[in-house]
């Protein structure tokens, strides 16, 4: 596991302990030239603050928006991004890769 990704998990714990609402995103699968490896994390709080990266910037905005929904309803979900995806026009990976991201609430 990448050193910075372990820092993300430490931050997720600290944020939650501090009483913030927290969602955690994890890259669970990649195809092609995905910018961040499987296991990469992004942590999001209820205010839209975030640490870490799942795609080097391409789809973070979308993941953060979905993260706020996960914080609201508590249901984990899987997001998929790629140039062939129907969401590509708003949040595609310019590199041509595809990624699946698991998003969960830390409660």
């Amino acid at each position: 596991m990448h050193a910075t990704d372990t820092d993300i998990l430490a931050a997720a714990e600290t944020w939650r302990r501090d009483g913030r609402d927290v969602a955690l995103a994890t890259v669970i699968e990649t195809w092609g030239s995905a910018p961040r490896p499987v296991g990469s994390h992004l942590v999001i709080d209820g205010g839209g603050n975030f640490l870490g990266s799942v795609s080097g910037g391409c789809v973070e905005g979308e993941v953060i928006t979905e993260g706020l929904d996960v914080i609201a309803d508590g249901r984990s979900r899987i997001l998929e991004f790629g140039v062939a995806d129907e969401t590509a026009w708003r949040a595609g990976l310019s590199c041509g890769g595809r990624i699946r991201v698991f998003l969960e609430r830390v409660a």
């Binding site: 372990t6 998990l9 430490a10 997720a12 714990e13 939650r16 302990r17 955690l24 969960e104 609430r105 830390v106 409660a107």
Partner: peptide, 14 residues
């Protein structure tokens, strides 16, 4: 993820 699980995972790493 439950905070207890996250805490345990972080404790193992530390």
């Amino acid at each position: 993820m439950r905070i207890e699980t996250l805490r345990a995972l972080n404790a193992e790493r530390a």
